[in-house]
Design a protein around this nucleic acid. Structure first.
Length: 111
DNA sequence: TCAGTGACTGACC
DNA sequence: GGGTCAGCCACTG
């Protein structure tokens, strides 16, 4: 059963799992860290598969604008926002306030 | 097999 | 400064 891409998923999961509490990152940051900066969509696609994994805090992954584009994929309509607020992150209109302040770059922090 | 779609991003007008 | 277009790779119909 398709395992060729599992390696890619595992990389994405590994990075997402390393996101510190109360921090968030973007698809592009993860993609770039994996050497696929031009394939940010693949990260989102991987998240789609990860969305069922409790070990992967997909709610900490947003687009570069800090917009909760993937919140619609969570069970509740505001579950993603709720989880982020629970970590001390302020959300307004599905967008993270002071996104730069909460942004976590794997290429720098994880390096 | 071809065409459409998607949790994105950067460049262009 | 804000909207539009194209590129990216993989999956589904």
């Amino acid at each position: 059963m398709k395992s060729k891409n599992d390696n890619f998923f595992q990389k994405v999961y590994a990075v997402v799992k390393k996101i510190p509490y109360g921090r968030v990152t973007s698809y592009g940051a993860i993609a770039k860290h994996l050497g696929m900066a031009r394939s940010a969509r693949m990260v989102g696609w991987a998240m789609n598969n990860a969305h069922g994994m409790e070990d992967v805090p997909a709610h900490r992954v947003v687009n570069r604008k800090g917009l909760l584009t993937g919140k619609h994929h969570f069970e509740g309509t505001n579950l993603m926002q709720q989880l982020l607020e629970s970590e001390g992150i302020k959300i307004k209109s599905d967008q993270i306030l002071e996104f730069e302040n909460f942004f976590w770059d794997p290429s720098k922090e994880l390096k």
